[in-house]
Nucleic acid binder design. Structure first.
Lengths: 215, 215
DNA sequence: TTAAAATACCCCCAATTGCGGTATAGTTTA
DNA sequence: TAAACTATACCGCAATTGGGGGTATTTTAA
């Protein structure tokens, strides 16, 4: 028999907290190893329970779920975090994803779906409610569009290398130093980059590179 | 009794095509209104079947699933498209999302899950296999701005205005001309921007502005 | 195999930028 | 009301950049 999936719950509402705990402990394959109604002593509580999966309420007093997610992920990247929320706000989703959440489900999700989601994240996948997924798709399209038809500017490896350093704001003399080329050579490459990108300055090149994800 | 969800299938493999068709027609609530093994006469086939949901194989001869998705979405944005794939390549997912897909599931998905996914997209949600979702999360984090908490650099309106023009690659003399300020004044603002952004050059400022969506 | 890229290097010169200042008038706010 | 901030403007100097011209190998592709 495989080991149970160890779950720690963070949930504002004590009634919900108990309900989740009961659900988990009542079903084979899952054990609730910790349940907390706030994120005080977060590190201590995580270290004591050492869960596989954390079920994290996003709306909590004090430290909120997103901050807690960040903290946990920093300390223990292998712990999977499943965010739970009543709201479906775009920026919250966005923040949660950036904080390193592995899944994002709404609170009206059925217990069956919830256990499924816990399984999914525990197995290295991600779980999302359909509405959340739809929002993520929308968000994705919003921030991704620049590369609908990625133009190929035929930059050589050296050119891409130099362009990348330029995007990091490195002045050419430093670039030359870093990649062991003469200053003049770097300048020659930069000129070539400008030609290929149809720009006339470093700022333009950098802007275009980032916007069109050239580097 | 609610109307059946009308589904049109595009699938390379005739055996799979028949299997999907049989599954759909065999279960209450779903009707297969069209099944095609390629995307020839795409528009005609869509117009004749007028589905609620399209089940689209991504790997097909001739017009591929992504192109077809784009075409269908352009013609009939209300039709939901569920992409099906054996592969789980990052750029395919990316392209499919950009083309306007509503869901993305792997072919090893069980019929139950598939019907669920069809329902999800039909109800305006999105469906994703856990592995796909995980990949999307990763992709998302890669292209999302690195700032979890967008830093407020307290730029004044003028500073933002000038920074915006810089991001467009405009040299300072041109900027001065454009906003009717003296060249030296623009330079003073630029210095102030660099201070606030903690950068030392135009390229750095531009890179930071775009990456952190300051402008 | 021959032409075209790609790689690497150099010089000059004018324009632009970065950095250090200073200064004044007006507006906010503590 | 005094202090702080904002918007505007200027100067000098050194460094960096942009644009133009070169030259020479090596690798790639037609």
């Amino acid at each position: 028999m495989p080991t149970d999936v160890k779950v720690t719950i963070f949930e504002d509402n004590p009634i919900m907290l108990d309900a989740y705990k009961a659900t988990l402990n009542g079903i084979d394959g899952y054990t609730c190893v910790g349940s907390y109604s706030n994120c005080d002593n977060l590190q201590h509580n995580i270290e004591r329970s050492m869960p596989d999966v954390v079920l994290m309420d996003i709306e909590m007093y004090g430290i909120n779920g997103i901050q807690a997610t960040q903290t946990i992920k920093q300390l223990y990247p292998q712990i999977k975090i499943l965010i739970q929320t009543v709201f479906e706000e775009d920026d919250k989703i966005f923040d949660a994803l950036c904080a390193g959440a592995n899944g994002y489900i709404t609170k009206n999700t059925s217990p069956v779906k919830m256990l499924e989601a816990i399984n999914d994240v525990n197995n290295g996948g991600s779980a999302m409610s359909p509405t959340i997924a739809a929002k993520m798709f929308t968000l994705f399209k919003k921030i991704a569009p620049p590369t609908i038809t990625p133009t190929n500017y035929h930059l050589t490896d050296r050119e891409k290398e130099i362009l990348t350093l330029m995007v990091d704001g490195m002045p050419m003399p430093k670039v030359a130093e870093k990649i062991f080329l003469s200053y003049e050579t770097v300048r020659t490459y930069v000129k070539s980059i400008y030609n290929k990108l149809h720009v006339a300055s470093a700022t333009e090149a950098v802007a275009k590179s980032i916007k069109e994800r050239i580097v």
